[in-house]
Design a protein around this nucleic acid. Structure first.
Lengths: 255, 255
DNA sequence: CTTGGTATG
DNA sequence: CATAACAAG
């Protein structure tokens, strides 16, 4: 089965720019979306309940902002949203589902790059997310997929030196990500591609960052032990996204 | 000499869509602009001080909103802005210049169509404008050009019946316009085209209003007696504007 | 339906 | 540099 995660940077814009064709090409069984920036009622019926898919939307309260979703070819049940009972998750950043015994989450960590206040929000979110991950059931296979807005190592970012003080590549953010791996989560794409530079999953819209492949790898599919034992391969669809989003879709194939 | 008035609906957008070509085509000696929606400092030097023109900008205080300008091939002096000493005209709606003995004004009356408060503002503006017109020197030739946001008669609007209660075609607005004519101002385009339906100078962006020519004539060049004695012809450049603004440029040729 | 400003990424 | 909400026309 194929699981794909994609920060679409506004689903309505993505649809205009060829989202459907790219999904038809990638053929995921499970599709984790981030930054949908839409509520279902703003979509045509055709997109709100697309033919051949089971879909769950988890939009933000605020219009045109953030939001995640899960699309699946097979039926699934919602396990939960947000990091705890106490977390209303009104920015629509975390949704977990159970599909064919596989626990799959679509997550969109806040960006901290716009202003210091947002970095505070990001770090609070990272803390809550860590607690939430720790509390996940350890028995069945599980996948954490989404835009974590953090590049892990110097292999995951083109301009490592220049970004040592940038949100998304701060030492303590990289360490936070490392802790997830230490806790038994596998970075599937890194596992697949080995110790090479890249491949990246996000490029700034400014300048010619994408064309020059000056990107960051901030979109991940993390697998726990049970899921990782079924891992076959990983793909970063670097061409697929070009016309659609500033992020590339990222996929894994599991047995 | 040719005088042209044009509500450009955002000069920066107009420039992107071919403003320069249209002006080169029309070849005005005096160009009265409305709804420039820009301050000179937001323009490149090339547009702030265009080659071969004397230009005066009268922007609104508020960014991206309203504003008028006068462009002239020959030098001119500013006679004044706003309707009185007491009127700061901070929406940049009225500028008068003196060029070769001709008194020329570019005026942009408020629209009242968005909400009742704006209709109040429009009517206050109409009253001040009437006083201002009355106080103009009666000796030399004078032209009042611009977007008055009022269609005068049923010949000046496609859907007369449907718009009897619409701002821009209200009985007292039409009467206010009639009073200008009674005070000795000549509606040059109407004089030129005679008692026919149209030609219109503005079409809604909604539906296919322009294609179906369901428009309004709300852009005028009014001439006092001295100017009207020099009147030769009038043109509504119905094709020129199509790619640029929702208003067509309107011109007169004077001896 | 379009412009342009703003917030956010 | 792009998306989307908004205010205004």
């Amino acid at each position: 089965m194929r699981i794909t995660t994609w920060n679409v940077n506004g689903l309505r814009a993505a649809i205009r720019k060829g989202f459907a064709d790219q999904i038809a090409e990638i053929q995921p069984d499970l599709l984790l979306l981030q930054e949908i920036r839409v509520t279902p009622d703003q979509l045509d019926e055709e997109w709100r309940s697309p033919d051949g898919w089971h879909v769950h939307w988890h939009p933000a309260q605020r219009k045109g902002y953030s939001g995640t979703a899960v699309w699946s070819r097979l039926p699934f049940e919602i396990v939960g949203t947000g990091t705890s009972e106490a977390d209303p998750d009104d920015e629509g950043r975390l949704i977990s589902v159970l599909c064919e015994g596989l626990n799959v989450s679509s997550v969109y960590l806040p960006s901290g790059s716009s202003k210091p206040e947002r970095q505070i929000v990001k770090e609070a979110w990272m803390n809550r997310f860590r607690s939430w991950v720790t509390g996940l059931p350890t028995t069945g296979p599980a996948i954490l997929g989404g835009d974590l807005n953090i590049a892990h190592t110097e292999k995951d970012i083109f301009y490592a030196k220049a970004n040592e003080k940038s949100s998304g590549f701060l030492p303590h953010e990289r360490e936070w990500f490392g802790d997830l791996l230490k806790a038994g989560w596998h970075d599937t794409a890194r596992h697949h591609f080995g110790d090479v530079q890249g491949p990246y999953s996000w490029w700034s819209n400014r300048g010619r960052a994408r064309e020059l492949d000056r990107g960051w790898r901030i979109d991940y599919l993390l697998a726990n032990a049970a899921a990782h034992s079924r891992f076959r391969s990983a793909t970063i669809h670097r061409e697929a996204g070009i016309t659609v989003s500033d992020h590339a879709p990222v996929s894994i194939d599991l047995d």
